[in-house]
Design a protein around this nucleic acid. Structure first.
Lengths: 152, 152
DNA sequence: TTGCTTGCAAATGATTTGCACTGCT
DNA sequence: AGCAGTGCAAATCATTTGCAAGCAA
């Protein structure tokens, strides 16, 4: 179950080091889990990177978020979700969100669509004198798993 | 501070009646507040439609949500937000979200952009065998108020 | 009277925090 | 030694729920 995460870890290590933060084994485990499983809830993270106390996981995720390594997502499920930041991965993406099981899957959109949207969002924001920084898009529906379950 | 909400109330009344639900004065107050103030947190709703107990507000909002009258939004602030459902208002819209004060403002996008996005989302979902129902877009940035405050 | 609505107070549960301890440096 | 990271247990706080009263059909 090992991909090549050395480059990723290198990046994170540098980032944390520059900010005077340690890249401990627990933090590495969290980053590993996120890089392999995509957006995760806390229980999922505890399972994947086993041996971490709940409070330590929350604390480490908070640190990693402040360092720009991870981002916290919030949807309708009971738990928040965490993912590697776009700043870190370099991939701008959006989310498929299943309204049945709350799973979240990453998707990328064609660049020209992103451009069109950015323009449209800028224009839409003018009327409210709102300065746009970024956009989050949730494509809400039913995941493959829940479709099967429903017809069974 | 009164707009013409009679049409709105008529709609809601019918909807609730058909489902065997009462359209009580408290529920009307909540609908009034939402129709005038846009997406509101619970404390905001308690202030606007004063005289409602916290627990009653939550319970009524839950009923109204099940009836398709309101929708619950979830962002990063401490409170959830409630808004009138698109099904009720007939206006598909998205949200400007201020990452400084967490305020949420409605915006509509041009129809042709919505079409382009829908197509793109459908295509993006195919790879994950995901059935798309709808999309939520948050345009994140800084609201007019917070821009002023920042430069002051 | 019967059942839904309401308010108060208590419970719930994800997340946060206090504190004592372990382990780098 | 000194300071950051960790686990456990306790606290926090938005939201939910139990229960006794109020109100409409």
């Amino acid at each position: 179950m090992n991909l090549d995460n050395s480059g990723l870890h290198q990046l994170v290590a540098t980032k944390l080091d520059e900010a005077g933060q340690m890249y401990t084994q627990k933090r590495q485990k969290l980053v590993d889990a996120l890089s392999q499983a995509g957006p995760c809830t806390l229980p999922e993270l505890l399972e994947f990177s086993d041996g971490i106390a709940q409070s330590s996981a929350y604390r480490n995720l908070t640190v990693l978020e402040e360092m720009g390594v991870v981002r916290r997502l919030v949807h309708h499920g009971e738990y928040g979700r965490w993912e590697l930041s776009e700043e870190l991965t370099g991939h701008h993406h959006h989310h498929l969100v299943c309204h049945s099981c709350d799973v979240v899957i990453d998707v990328e959109l064609p660049t020209h669509i992103e451009h069109l949207m950015d323009e449209a969002f800028e224009k839409a924001a003018i009327g409210s004198k709102f300065t746009v920084d970024r956009h989050n898009i949730d494509i809400v529906g039913t995941c493959a798993n829940c479709q099967e379950t429903a017809q069974a």
